[in-house]
Measured scan of single mutants.
Amino acid sequence: KLLSSIEQACDICRLKKLKCSKEKPKCAKCLKNNWECRYSPKTKRSPLTRAHLTEVESRLERLE
């Protein structure tokens, strides 16, 4: 599967780190437990900047 097509777990399953069936409108866990089942939009991760990478590398060197 391509990364862009990976389905996201519902908010509660993601928060509780449960295996989500990803069914809509309610996944199996939410249906069974009568929880409100919501699927928040995916958040875009910002790409690493060179400055951040350099900072992490220098912190790693100090720890070694």
Rank of each mutant, 00 (worst) to 15 (best):
E7R: 08
L3M: 11
C37H: 01
V56R: 02
P41R: 05
K44Q: 15
D11M: 05
K44T: 12
C27N: 01
K1Y: 14
N33M: 09
R59H: 09
R59L: 05
L31Q: 11
L31W: 15
E57C: 05
E36H: 13
L15V: 12
A9K: 02
C30T: 06
C30P: 01
L53K: 04
N34Q: 14
K26W: 12
K24E: 14
C27T: 02
L48H: 02
N34V: 10
K19L: 05
N34H: 11
S40C: 05
L53P: 05
K19F: 00
E36I: 09
K29I: 04
K22Q: 07
L15H: 10
R62S: 11
L18G: 15
S40F: 05
T43S: 12
L63D: 02
A51R: 10
T43A: 14
E55S: 14
L48F: 05
N33Q: 13
K17G: 03
E23H: 14
Q8R: 07
P41L: 05
K22W: 05
L60F: 09
V56L: 10
L15A: 10
E7D: 12
S4N: 08
S58D: 11
K16H: 00
K42Q: 12
V56N: 01
P47G: 06
R50P: 02
C10S: 01
I6Q: 13
L2V: 15
P47R: 10
R59C: 06
C30H: 04
Y39I: 06
R62P: 08
R14H: 07
L48T: 03
A28P: 01
Y39T: 08
K22L: 05
C20R: 00
A9Q: 06
R62Q: 14
R38A: 13
Y39Q: 07
C37M: 03
E7G: 09
S4A: 14
R62T: 13
K29E: 02
T49D: 01
E64P: 06
T54V: 08
R45C: 00
C10P: 00
E57W: 05
K42H: 10
T54A: 09
D11G: 03
L15W: 13
E57K: 03
K32M: 13
V56I: 07
S21V: 02
E64H: 10
C13D: 00
Q8L: 11
R62I: 13
P47Y: 07
E61C: 13
R14S: 04
L18C: 08
L63M: 13
L2E: 14
T43K: 06
A9R: 02
L15R: 07
H52I: 02
K1S: 15
K22A: 03
T54R: 06
C37D: 07
V56Y: 08
Y39P: 02
L31M: 13
R50K: 01
D11C: 02
C37F: 07
K24F: 15
C27W: 03
E61M: 13
K24C: 11
K19E: 03
K32G: 11
R14V: 00
L60M: 13
S40D: 02
A28I: 09
C20F: 06
E61I: 12
R45I: 00
R59Y: 04
S58G: 12
L2S: 14
C30I: 04
L53H: 02
C37K: 01
L15Q: 07
E57L: 00
E57N: 00
L18K: 02
C37I: 00
S21P: 08
E7H: 04
D11P: 00
L31Y: 14
E23C: 13
E55P: 00
K22E: 04
R62D: 00
S40P: 00
A9D: 03
R62E: 05
E64T: 14
P41I: 06
R38K: 10
K26S: 12
C20M: 06
I6T: 11
E64R: 08
C20K: 05
R14G: 04
L53Q: 01
T54M: 08
C37A: 06
E23F: 07
S58M: 12
L18R: 04
K19Q: 06
V56C: 14
T54F: 07
A9N: 03
K22I: 01
C13A: 01
K17S: 04
L2N: 13
K26G: 14
K44W: 10
R45Q: 08
H52C: 05
W35L: 14
K16M: 00
A51D: 06
H52M: 03
T54H: 09
R62V: 14
K17C: 04
L31F: 14
S46A: 07
N33V: 08
P47T: 02
K17T: 03
L31N: 14
C20S: 03
S46L: 03
Q8A: 11
E55T: 12
S5I: 12
Q8M: 10
S58R: 09
S5Q: 08
S40Q: 07
D11V: 07
L48R: 00
E55W: 14
K1F: 13
L31H: 14
E61L: 14
L3E: 15
N34A: 14
E7I: 11
S4Q: 10
I12M: 08
C13R: 08
A28E: 11
P47D: 08
L53T: 02
R38C: 13
K42R: 12
K16A: 02
A51H: 10
L63Q: 00
E64I: 11
R14L: 05
T49A: 01
W35E: 10
A28K: 12
A28S: 07
D11K: 02
E55N: 12
S4V: 11
R59Q: 12
K16N: 06
L2Q: 14
P47I: 01
P47C: 05
R59P: 03
T49S: 05
E57P: 07
Y39M: 05
L53V: 10
S5R: 08
P47V: 04
T54D: 09
A9G: 10
E23Y: 03
P47K: 08
S4H: 11
R38N: 15
T49K: 03
K19W: 05
L60W: 00
R45L: 04
L31P: 03
K26M: 13
E23R: 09
E23T: 14
L15Y: 15
C20L: 05
E36S: 13
E61R: 11
L31D: 15
L15I: 10
C27G: 01
L3G: 11
R45P: 03
S46Y: 03
C13V: 06
H52T: 00
H52R: 09
E23V: 12
K19A: 09
D11H: 04
V56F: 00
L18W: 11
R50A: 00
S21Y: 02
K19N: 05
P25L: 05
K26T: 08
Y39A: 04
N34T: 15
S4G: 07
E61F: 11
K29F: 04
E57I: 00
L53A: 02
Q8Y: 08
K29V: 06
K44S: 09
K32Y: 09
P47H: 04
L63I: 15
